[in-house]
């Protein structure tokens, strides 16, 4: 996704090595994805089919309310 759009940066975080990040983002299970724009964030728990993942990750940030 990051490679497809220059506005996106993606991090793959090895959870066991960085307990501070695990605490900060309250990671209680893996995989867990945190998608953030500014101070807003959406969390996706577990693995999803590709299109469902893209939809869940981006809907809060691309739909006008």
């Amino acid at each position: 996704m990051a490679f497809a759009n220059p506005h996106i940066t993606a991090y793959a975080v090895e959870a066991t090595e960085f307990p501070d990040l695990v605490r900060r983002y309250q990671v209680t299970g893996v995989p867990k994805t945190v998608v953030a724009v500014g101070n807003e964030a959406v969390e996706i728990l577990g693995a999803l089919p590709q299109e469902a993942f893209v939809e869940q990750a981006l809907t809060p940030f691309t739909t006008d309310s």
Partner: peptide, 8 residues
């Protein structure tokens, strides 16, 4: 700008 972090 969107940041995505995948914990694994």
């Amino acid at each position: 700008p969107v940041t995505m972090q995948v914990f694994a």
